[in-house]
Design a protein around this nucleic acid. Structure first.
Lengths: 225, 225
DNA sequence: CGGGTCGGTGGTACGGAGTACTCCTTGGAT
DNA sequence: ATCCAAGGAGTACTCCGTACCACCGACCCG
């Protein structure tokens, strides 16, 4: 199957799905518009929805490679930057796709079957991030939960920013992802490694510890940004 | 459609899926084993996988009700307890199901189509939690991201514990969920409101703040659990 | 130069999911 | 007894996805 045939099929699929809707367009119609037989369609794509959903495998491999490049016993700052860079890889992929990514988003918004495939693809990313965080965010069962939760947090933050960009609500998605991930990964530690001595503010209050800690953190960051 | 017919169809579906596998079982076979016609099957369930996947609507409604019962302008402690209780509602539902939940888990593990439906159902929960957290965890874009991330974190933590119980790796899922959610929701505030005075240990170290905080927390919890 | 192999393509047939429609049975009310 | 309502059974249809076979051009080999 030549690449041009595959691309023609994708274009035909997007055009027809946009004209008649996903359910109302048959695979025969897509193949016919692309000028090929039905068999060729199913040779290029495993199923009807595969023609519209992206090839996650390639970018997933890049993400995996980036995460596995990080040392096993890493400082919190290194863990955070590796995760952040990996997430940015995914975002960059969508930004490269441009209008096609937006067209796909419009489809996945309206067709439940496509939405399901989409969120299933997210699981793969979350799994890769979880394996990366395992052993780097604590030991035992607590560490396991934290790794999985943190992976979900990273994926969710990325998707939040990505969706805003797809809806054209966020003109600067790269910066937005930076900020979102910094907020999410703050539980790991600062992004800048080797900041040295840290003073903890002394206080005695009626509030609980977890209420106080953010205030302490904010005070410290205000003093030495 | 009588409830007994529906239940007979579910039992037949589980039995046949277990015997021959999901793909190798036709709807006709399920209907025949249940002693009804194919039409009746599709009257009871929208699709083949609906027969094995749970009725999320009822428990989702309970979760929504619990979350909406919380006051709009709530203290962090109230927000955390409401979210925790809502998550416990879902866990309790699965615990009630018992062996059927485990049988379903075995199916969803092996059949990709069912797995997709499963994760799609999680989106509904995550959405409800996100709407609950909106406006309660900050304003503006940061608040939006935090709400969505926190929702994902709660759902993920719940699922982590649930999966461990389904695999019979966690004999005390309720306590485990408590601990996991306490860890996740620590960014919000304390679970027990009005616990009174909290002393923060004073120290000056070369470690970073986020490295020190867990030690402080551990020391305090050891002193007054 | 003719024949054979082989990768890519088209066509056809089939099983099964899901939908639409009609007919029938059953139980209850008047 | 008759009518009626509701759920179930049967049937036919579309379309997805797969399997199988036929074709066709390219390239190799004798």
């Amino acid at each position: 199957m030549s690449e041009s045939t595959r691309e023609r099929l994708v274009a035909a699929a997007y055009a027809l799905f946009d004209e008649r809707g996903y359910d109302a367009t048959t695979v025969d119609a897509v193949a016919e518009r692309a000028g090929v037989g039905r068999t060729t369609f199913f040779r290029a794509f495993r199923s009807k929805d595969d023609a519209v959903l992206p090839d996650h495998d390639a970018v997933l491999a890049r993400v995996t490679a980036r995460l596995e490049a990080a040392p096993a016993t890493a400082a919190p700052a290194t863990v955070a930057t590796a995760a952040s860079e990996a997430a940015h890889l995914v975002l960059a992929h969508y930004l490269d796709e441009g209008e096609r990514a937006r067209a796909r988003y419009r489809l996945t918004r309206t067709v439940p079957a496509l939405r399901q495939r989409e969120v299933a693809g997210l699981q793969a990313y979350q799994r890769v991030f979880r394996e990366f965080f395992r052993g780097r965010v604590g030991d035992g069962e607590t560490g396991e939960v934290r790794a999985e939760v943190l992976a979900a947090a990273v994926v969710t933050a990325h998707n939040h920013v990505l969706r805003r960009w797809l809806r054209e609500e966020e003109p600067e998605p790269v910066g937005a992802l930076d900020r979102a991930l910094a907020d999410v990964l703050a539980v790991l530690g600062p992004h800048r490694p080797g900041t040295g001595r840290t003073r903890v503010v002394v206080l005695e209050a009626d509030d609980d510890l977890d209420t106080v800690v953010p205030a302490v953190r904010a005070a410290l960051e205000r003093r030495e940004p």
